[in-house]
Protein backbone atom coordinates (compact mmCIF):
# COMPACT_ATOMS: atom_id res chain seq x y z
CA UNK A 1 0.00 0.00 0.00
CA UNK A 2 1.33 3.42 -0.87
CA UNK A 3 2.36 5.96 1.75
CA UNK A 4 -0.47 8.20 0.66
CA UNK A 5 -3.02 5.58 1.61
CA UNK A 6 -1.15 5.04 4.85
CA UNK A 7 -1.47 8.70 5.59
CA UNK A 8 -5.15 8.76 4.77
CA UNK A 9 -6.21 5.82 6.88
CA UNK A 10 -3.27 5.13 9.10
CA UNK A 11 -1.80 6.25 12.36
CA UNK A 12 -1.34 9.95 12.75
CA UNK A 13 2.11 11.31 13.17
CA UNK A 14 2.23 13.97 15.85
CA UNK A 15 -0.01 16.70 14.56
CA UNK A 16 -1.50 19.77 16.05
CA UNK A 17 -5.17 19.21 16.77
CA UNK A 18 -7.91 21.50 18.03
CA UNK A 19 -7.21 20.19 21.52
CA UNK A 20 -3.92 22.09 21.42
CA UNK A 21 -5.78 25.37 21.07
CA UNK A 22 -8.46 24.83 23.69
CA UNK A 23 -6.67 26.45 26.60
CA UNK A 24 -6.13 23.34 28.70
CA UNK A 25 -3.21 21.12 29.56
CA UNK A 26 -2.54 19.96 25.98
CA UNK A 27 -2.07 23.55 24.89
CA UNK A 28 0.24 24.37 27.80
CA UNK A 29 2.33 21.28 27.10
CA UNK A 30 2.67 22.20 23.42
CA UNK A 31 3.76 25.73 24.29
CA UNK A 32 6.10 24.71 27.11
CA UNK A 33 7.74 21.84 25.25
CA UNK A 34 7.88 23.15 21.72
CA UNK A 35 7.02 26.78 21.21
CA UNK A 36 8.44 28.58 24.23
CA UNK A 37 11.68 26.65 24.46
CA UNK A 38 15.06 27.95 23.41
CA UNK A 39 14.64 31.68 23.82
CA UNK A 40 16.94 33.70 26.03
CA UNK A 41 15.35 34.66 29.36
CA UNK A 42 14.72 38.22 30.55
CA UNK A 43 16.56 39.82 33.45
CA UNK A 44 15.97 38.48 36.93
CA UNK A 45 12.61 39.47 38.33
CA UNK A 46 11.15 40.30 34.96
CA UNK A 47 8.37 38.20 33.46
CA UNK A 48 9.17 36.59 30.12
CA UNK A 49 8.01 33.71 27.97
CA UNK A 50 9.08 31.04 30.44
CA UNK A 51 6.59 32.31 33.03
CA UNK A 52 3.73 31.46 30.63
CA UNK A 53 1.79 34.35 32.14
CA UNK A 54 -0.79 36.51 30.35
CA UNK A 55 2.00 38.78 29.02
CA UNK A 56 5.56 39.96 29.55
CA UNK A 57 6.77 42.63 32.01
CA UNK A 58 9.97 44.69 31.77
CA UNK A 59 11.37 47.08 34.36
CA UNK A 60 11.09 50.67 33.19
CA UNK A 61 12.43 53.23 35.64
CA UNK A 62 10.52 52.72 38.90
CA UNK A 63 7.69 50.93 37.16
CA UNK A 64 6.94 48.29 34.58
CA UNK A 65 6.23 48.04 30.88
CA UNK A 66 3.81 45.23 30.12
CA UNK A 67 3.35 43.68 26.65
CA UNK A 68 0.86 41.06 25.52
CA UNK A 69 -0.34 39.70 22.19
CA UNK A 70 -3.32 37.66 21.12
CA UNK A 71 -4.66 36.37 17.81
CA UNK A 72 -8.41 36.18 17.59
CA UNK A 73 -10.35 33.72 15.50
CA UNK A 74 -13.98 33.06 16.20
CA UNK A 75 -16.91 31.49 14.46
CA UNK A 76 -19.38 33.03 13.96
CA UNK A 77 -17.68 36.42 13.57
CA UNK A 78 -20.80 38.13 14.95
CA UNK A 79 -22.37 36.44 17.98
CA UNK A 80 -24.88 37.34 20.69
CA UNK A 81 -23.20 39.89 22.93
CA UNK A 82 -20.28 40.77 20.67
CA UNK A 83 -18.14 40.16 17.63
CA UNK A 84 -14.53 39.46 16.73
CA UNK A 85 -13.63 43.16 16.86
CA UNK A 86 -14.87 43.61 20.41
CA UNK A 87 -13.15 40.38 21.38
CA UNK A 88 -9.84 41.47 19.83
CA UNK A 89 -9.76 44.71 21.81
CA UNK A 90 -11.16 43.36 25.09
CA UNK A 91 -9.01 40.22 25.04
CA UNK A 92 -5.76 42.12 24.88
CA UNK A 93 -6.83 44.91 27.24
CA UNK A 94 -7.82 42.25 29.78
CA UNK A 95 -4.54 40.35 29.45
CA UNK A 96 -2.73 43.59 30.26
CA UNK A 97 -5.11 44.42 33.09
CA UNK A 98 -4.70 41.11 34.91
CA UNK A 99 -0.95 41.74 34.94
CA UNK A 100 -1.63 45.06 36.59
CA UNK A 101 -1.30 47.28 33.51
CA UNK A 102 -4.72 48.88 33.58
CA UNK A 103 -3.45 52.00 31.84
CA UNK A 104 -2.85 51.05 28.24
CA UNK A 105 -0.44 53.01 26.04
CA UNK A 106 -1.81 51.57 22.85
CA UNK A 107 -2.89 48.53 20.88
CA UNK A 108 -1.77 47.29 17.49
CA UNK A 109 -4.19 45.60 15.14
CA UNK A 110 -3.14 43.18 12.42
CA UNK A 111 -5.85 41.67 10.25
CA UNK A 112 -5.64 38.70 7.93
CA UNK A 113 -8.74 38.67 5.76
CA UNK A 114 -10.10 35.97 3.46
CA UNK A 115 -10.74 36.88 -0.15
CA UNK A 116 -14.45 37.50 -0.57
CA UNK A 117 -15.05 38.71 2.99
CA UNK A 118 -17.87 41.31 2.85
CA UNK A 119 -16.59 44.86 3.24
CA UNK A 120 -19.75 45.73 5.16
CA UNK A 121 -18.80 43.14 7.78
CA UNK A 122 -15.32 44.60 7.95
CA UNK A 123 -16.77 48.05 8.60
CA UNK A 124 -19.02 46.62 11.28
CA UNK A 125 -16.03 44.97 12.96
CA UNK A 126 -14.07 48.22 12.70
CA UNK A 127 -16.88 50.21 14.36
CA UNK A 128 -17.11 47.64 17.11
CA UNK A 129 -13.35 47.92 17.73
CA UNK A 130 -13.68 51.70 17.95
CA UNK A 131 -16.51 51.47 20.46
CA UNK A 132 -14.69 48.92 22.58
CA UNK A 133 -11.54 51.06 22.53
CA UNK A 134 -13.58 54.00 23.82
CA UNK A 135 -15.04 51.86 26.60
CA UNK A 136 -11.56 50.77 27.64
CA UNK A 137 -9.98 54.20 27.20
CA UNK A 138 -7.44 52.86 24.72
CA UNK A 139 -6.58 53.44 21.09
CA UNK A 140 -5.08 51.54 18.20
CA UNK A 141 -1.71 53.00 17.27
CA UNK A 142 -0.51 50.90 14.35
CA UNK A 143 -1.69 48.02 12.22
CA UNK A 144 -1.22 45.66 9.34
CA UNK A 145 -3.54 44.14 6.75
CA UNK A 146 -3.12 41.00 4.65
CA UNK A 147 -5.57 39.30 2.31
CA UNK A 148 -5.35 35.56 1.65
CA UNK A 149 -7.05 33.45 -0.99
CA UNK A 150 -10.54 32.01 -0.67
CA UNK A 151 -10.51 28.98 1.59
CA UNK A 152 -7.05 29.66 2.99
CA UNK A 153 -8.54 30.83 6.27
CA UNK A 154 -12.00 31.08 7.76
CA UNK A 155 -13.12 34.67 7.23
CA UNK A 156 -10.87 36.84 9.33
CA UNK A 157 -8.11 36.69 11.92
CA UNK A 158 -7.31 39.71 14.07
CA UNK A 159 -4.12 39.95 16.09
CA UNK A 160 -3.84 42.67 18.67
CA UNK A 161 -0.78 43.51 20.72
CA UNK A 162 -1.07 45.73 23.75
CA UNK A 163 1.47 47.81 25.61
CA UNK A 164 0.77 49.22 29.04
CA UNK A 165 2.44 50.76 32.05
CA UNK A 166 2.12 49.64 35.64
CA UNK A 167 3.55 50.92 38.90
CA UNK A 168 3.57 47.37 40.14
CA UNK A 169 2.69 44.17 38.39
CA UNK A 170 0.62 41.16 39.42
CA UNK A 171 1.54 37.67 38.25
CA UNK A 172 -0.68 34.59 38.17
CA UNK A 173 1.63 32.75 40.57
CA UNK A 174 1.59 34.81 43.77
CA UNK A 175 -0.96 32.89 45.83
CA UNK A 176 -0.17 31.86 49.43
CA UNK A 177 -2.06 29.60 51.81
CA UNK A 178 -4.87 31.61 53.38
CA UNK A 179 -5.34 33.98 50.44
CA UNK A 180 -8.89 34.37 49.25
CA UNK A 181 -10.09 33.95 45.67
CA UNK A 182 -12.41 36.64 44.34
CA UNK A 183 -14.33 36.21 41.10
CA UNK A 184 -15.57 39.38 39.37
CA UNK A 185 -18.87 38.00 38.02
CA UNK A 186 -20.91 35.05 36.70
CA UNK A 187 -19.06 32.40 34.70
CA UNK A 188 -19.67 30.57 31.43
CA UNK A 189 -21.53 33.23 29.47
CA UNK A 190 -19.15 33.59 26.53
CA UNK A 191 -18.61 29.90 25.81
CA UNK A 192 -22.26 28.91 26.17
CA UNK A 193 -23.44 31.77 23.92
CA UNK A 194 -20.90 30.78 21.28
CA UNK A 195 -21.78 27.12 21.45
CA UNK A 196 -25.49 27.87 21.10
CA UNK A 197 -24.81 30.20 18.15
CA UNK A 198 -22.34 27.89 16.46
CA UNK A 199 -23.71 24.41 16.69
CA UNK A 200 -27.35 24.97 15.85
CA UNK A 201 -28.36 23.36 19.12
CA UNK A 202 -31.75 25.01 19.01
CA UNK A 203 -31.41 26.70 22.39
CA UNK A 204 -33.44 29.88 22.78
CA UNK A 205 -32.95 32.27 25.63
CA UNK A 206 -30.93 35.23 26.75
CA UNK A 207 -27.56 33.60 26.13
CA UNK A 208 -25.07 36.41 25.52
CA UNK A 209 -21.29 36.57 25.62
CA UNK A 210 -19.81 38.60 28.45
CA UNK A 211 -17.02 39.94 26.20
CA UNK A 212 -15.96 43.33 27.62
CA UNK A 213 -12.82 45.22 28.60
CA UNK A 214 -12.40 45.07 32.37
CA UNK A 215 -9.35 47.28 32.93
CA UNK A 216 -11.48 49.85 34.73
CA UNK A 217 -12.89 47.16 37.03
CA UNK A 218 -9.39 45.87 37.82
CA UNK A 219 -8.22 49.43 38.45
CA UNK A 220 -11.05 49.82 40.96
CA UNK A 221 -10.08 46.62 42.73
CA UNK A 222 -6.41 47.52 42.91
CA UNK A 223 -7.26 51.00 44.15
CA UNK A 224 -9.07 49.47 47.12
CA UNK A 225 -6.32 47.10 48.16
CA UNK A 226 -3.07 47.99 46.59
CA UNK A 227 -0.43 45.51 47.49
CA UNK A 228 -2.92 43.01 48.84
CA UNK A 229 -3.81 41.68 45.41
CA UNK A 230 -1.25 38.92 44.91
CA UNK A 231 -2.39 37.15 41.75
CA UNK A 232 -4.78 37.70 38.85
CA UNK A 233 -5.87 35.83 35.74
CA UNK A 234 -8.68 36.07 33.21
CA UNK A 235 -10.48 32.73 32.91
CA UNK A 236 -10.85 32.59 29.12
CA UNK A 237 -10.52 29.31 27.19
CA UNK A 238 -10.54 26.38 29.58
CA UNK A 239 -12.79 28.39 31.90
CA UNK A 240 -12.45 28.90 35.63
CA UNK A 241 -11.14 25.32 36.04
CA UNK A 242 -8.09 25.91 33.85
CA UNK A 243 -7.35 29.39 35.22
CA UNK A 244 -7.47 28.28 38.86
CA UNK A 245 -5.54 25.06 38.22
CA UNK A 246 -2.81 27.02 36.51
CA UNK A 247 -2.68 29.52 39.38
CA UNK A 248 -2.57 26.70 41.93
CA UNK A 249 0.23 24.90 40.08
CA UNK A 250 2.34 27.99 39.58
CA UNK A 251 1.82 29.26 43.10
CA UNK A 252 2.32 25.88 44.77
CA UNK A 253 -0.92 26.01 46.76
CA UNK A 254 -4.17 24.09 46.75
CA UNK A 255 -7.35 26.03 46.03
CA UNK A 256 -10.70 25.13 47.58
CA UNK A 257 -13.75 26.63 45.89
CA UNK A 258 -17.15 26.79 47.56
CA UNK A 259 -19.49 25.95 44.70
CA UNK A 260 -22.54 27.67 46.16
CA UNK A 261 -20.71 31.01 46.15
CA UNK A 262 -19.71 30.88 42.47
CA UNK A 263 -22.05 33.13 40.47
CA UNK A 264 -23.72 31.46 37.46
CA UNK A 265 -26.77 32.93 35.74
CA UNK A 266 -29.93 30.83 35.50
CA UNK A 267 -29.75 30.63 31.71
CA UNK A 268 -26.13 29.52 31.68
CA UNK A 269 -26.88 26.95 34.37
CA UNK A 270 -29.87 25.70 32.37
CA UNK A 271 -28.02 25.52 29.06
CA UNK A 272 -25.12 23.74 30.77
CA UNK A 273 -27.52 21.19 32.32
CA UNK A 274 -29.20 20.51 28.99
CA UNK A 275 -25.90 20.07 27.19
CA UNK A 276 -24.22 18.15 30.01
CA UNK A 277 -21.49 20.76 30.43
CA UNK A 278 -19.75 22.10 33.51
CA UNK A 279 -19.80 25.94 33.72
CA UNK A 280 -16.32 25.68 35.29
CA UNK A 281 -15.03 24.50 31.91
CA UNK A 282 -16.67 27.20 29.83
CA UNK A 283 -14.85 30.27 28.50
CA UNK A 284 -15.30 33.82 29.79
CA UNK A 285 -14.19 37.04 28.09
CA UNK A 286 -15.05 39.69 30.65
CA UNK A 287 -14.11 38.21 34.01
CA UNK A 288 -11.10 38.01 36.27
CA UNK A 289 -10.00 35.78 39.12
CA UNK A 290 -8.25 37.78 41.82
CA UNK A 291 -6.13 36.35 44.61
CA UNK A 292 -6.24 38.62 47.68
CA UNK A 293 -4.60 38.59 51.11
CA UNK A 294 -7.25 37.49 53.60
CA UNK A 295 -7.52 40.83 55.44
CA UNK A 296 -8.18 42.77 52.21
CA UNK A 297 -10.71 40.41 50.61
CA UNK A 298 -13.76 42.30 51.84
CA UNK A 299 -12.38 45.66 50.72
CA UNK A 300 -11.68 44.30 47.24
CA UNK A 301 -15.14 42.75 47.07
CA UNK A 302 -16.83 45.99 48.11
CA UNK A 303 -14.83 47.96 45.55
CA UNK A 304 -15.65 45.49 42.77
CA UNK A 305 -19.34 45.58 43.60
CA UNK A 306 -19.35 49.37 43.42
CA UNK A 307 -18.51 49.07 39.72
CA UNK A 308 -21.42 47.96 37.48
CA UNK A 309 -19.19 45.33 35.85
CA UNK A 310 -18.48 43.82 39.25
CA UNK A 311 -21.93 43.94 40.82
CA UNK A 312 -22.10 40.13 41.07
CA UNK A 313 -18.52 39.71 42.28
CA UNK A 314 -18.05 37.14 45.03
CA UNK A 315 -15.43 35.61 47.28
CA UNK A 316 -15.47 32.04 46.03
CA UNK A 317 -12.57 30.24 47.64
CA UNK A 318 -9.46 29.97 49.77
CA UNK A 319 -5.90 28.83 49.19
CA UNK A 320 -4.54 26.01 51.33
CA UNK A 321 -1.15 24.51 52.01
CA UNK A 322 -2.27 20.95 51.18
CA UNK A 323 -3.06 19.40 47.79
CA UNK A 324 -0.64 21.75 46.09
CA UNK A 325 -1.36 22.41 42.46
CA UNK A 326 -4.88 21.02 42.80
CA UNK A 327 -8.27 22.63 42.46
CA UNK A 328 -10.83 21.27 44.92
CA UNK A 329 -14.54 21.97 44.74
CA UNK A 330 -16.74 21.83 47.81
CA UNK A 331 -20.13 21.03 46.26
CA UNK A 332 -22.08 21.30 49.50
CA UNK A 333 -22.42 17.49 49.40
CA UNK A 334 -18.77 16.62 49.40
CA UNK A 335 -15.43 17.65 48.01
CA UNK A 336 -14.03 16.67 44.65
CA UNK A 337 -11.09 17.48 42.46
CA UNK A 338 -11.83 19.62 39.45
CA UNK A 339 -10.04 18.62 36.28
CA UNK A 340 -9.29 20.86 33.37
CA UNK A 341 -11.31 20.37 30.21
CA UNK A 342 -9.64 18.29 27.53
CA UNK A 343 -10.17 20.16 24.33
CA UNK A 344 -13.17 22.28 23.60
CA UNK A 345 -16.16 21.23 25.72
CA UNK A 346 -18.74 19.37 23.63
CA UNK A 347 -22.37 18.66 24.44
CA UNK A 348 -22.77 15.15 25.80
CA UNK A 349 -25.62 12.67 26.13
CA UNK A 350 -24.27 10.58 28.99
Amino acid sequence: MSDRVGEKYGVLGERVTLKHGAGGRAMRMLIEDKLAAGFAPLADGEIGLAAMDDGAAFRLGDGWLVVTTDSHVIHPVFFPGGDIGRLAVAGTVNDLAVMGATDVLGLTSAMVIEEGFPQSDLERIQRSMQETCQEAGVTIVTGDTKVMGKGELDGIIINTTGVGLAESIVSDSGLNPGDRIVLTGPIGEHGIALMAARRGLGLEGDLRSDVAPINDLIRTARGAADGSIVAMKDPTRGGLASALTEMAEKSGVGIVIDEASVPVTDVVRAAAEILGLDPFHIANEGKAVIGVRPNAADAVLTALRSNPQGKDAAIVGTCIDEHRGRLILDTGFGRRLVSEPEGEPLPRIC
Binding site: G202, D206, L207, R269, A270, R348, I349, C350
Partner: peptide, 28 residues
Protein backbone atom coordinates in the same frame (compact mmCIF):
# COMPACT_ATOMS: atom_id res chain seq x y z
CA UNK B 1 -25.63 6.96 30.95
CA UNK B 2 -28.42 9.05 29.58
CA UNK B 3 -28.53 12.67 30.50
CA UNK B 4 -32.16 13.50 31.21
CA UNK B 5 -33.33 17.00 31.96
CA UNK B 6 -36.81 17.89 33.21
CA UNK B 7 -38.57 20.84 31.62
CA UNK B 8 -42.01 22.39 31.39
CA UNK B 9 -44.00 22.32 28.17
CA UNK B 10 -44.89 25.81 26.95
CA UNK B 11 -46.41 25.04 23.58
CA UNK B 12 -47.42 21.94 21.64
CA UNK B 13 -47.51 21.82 17.87
CA UNK B 14 -48.22 18.30 16.61
CA UNK B 15 -45.31 16.10 17.57
CA UNK B 16 -43.09 19.01 18.55
CA UNK B 17 -43.22 20.86 21.87
CA UNK B 18 -41.48 24.02 22.94
CA UNK B 19 -40.11 23.30 26.40
CA UNK B 20 -38.76 25.67 29.03
CA UNK B 21 -35.70 24.58 30.99
CA UNK B 22 -35.05 27.19 33.69
CA UNK B 23 -35.34 30.03 31.18
CA UNK B 24 -33.83 28.34 28.14
CA UNK B 25 -36.22 27.02 25.54
CA UNK B 26 -35.73 24.17 23.16
CA UNK B 27 -37.87 22.12 20.82
CA UNK B 28 -38.53 18.63 22.10
Amino acid sequence: MCLGVPGQVVEVNGLVASVDFWGVRREV
